[in-house]
Amino acid sequence: MSNVLSQRGLNWLRALTAGAAEQSGYPASVRVVDAALGGQPARYIAVVPDAQNRFPRARSGEVGLLEGWSLGCALDEVIEADRDAPVKRAVVAVVDVPSQAYGRREEALGIHQALAGAVDGYARARLAGHPVIALLVGKAMSGAFLAHGYQANRIVALRDPGVMVHAMGKESAARVTLRTVDELEAFAAKVPPMAYDLDSYASLGLLWETLSVEAIETPQGDDLARVQACLEQAQADIRTNGTDLRGRLGAANRAASQRVRELLRAQW
């Protein structure tokens, strides 16, 4: 397997926080940095590869047992720290997660519960009034994205072939649906929610903004400034318009999601 581990998450985390110190006490795969966003305090979080991870199936940036629970910890710290604060600090999830960890140890020890720990943290932070923003700089796959990013109020994605949101990799998805990879790709070409490209994903209305950058691997200069400005706008937008997830509804390719809610409300 040609497995060049992605450094995008770490690179963007460092660039956005201007190299500020990382919080101690976290595993090497979970990087937590407190730094400013638009002059206000914020917490930036990334899950990154760690070749020495104690859990061998979580060495390539996957969200595993330690990562899930540690995300829950990083978010609970913020909620507690701002418990009495009139303005809650923003949380920025820098997302470059190839998958959840697939392994025997993980299933046996309850990785679903660890990822629930992460989702719990993000959801409670949002409910407590923290603006939560996800910045997609690489893969945002399946359970890993549910645990790290999908609870955000606003999702911002960089335009790049390496930025991808999906429920399952092609080979596994083909196996589970009893199709060949070719058949899967043929369907993906005409069914937007099945597609692996960012434009198709954007057509579902789940992204708040997409941004083009010159050099996604090496964030700096204008690229960095533009992304920072966008994150600041997202923060301001959340502070003005609220921390719920209603902004995700409305796209034509997601019309049924809205219609079901309207009908349910009418019959409730």
Partner: peptide, 12 residues
């Protein structure tokens, strides 16, 4: 998986 990303979004 036939509605992949819309299922994932709904689960979030």
């Amino acid at each position: 998986l036939q509605e992949a990303n819309l299922g994932l979004a709904a689960i979030a």
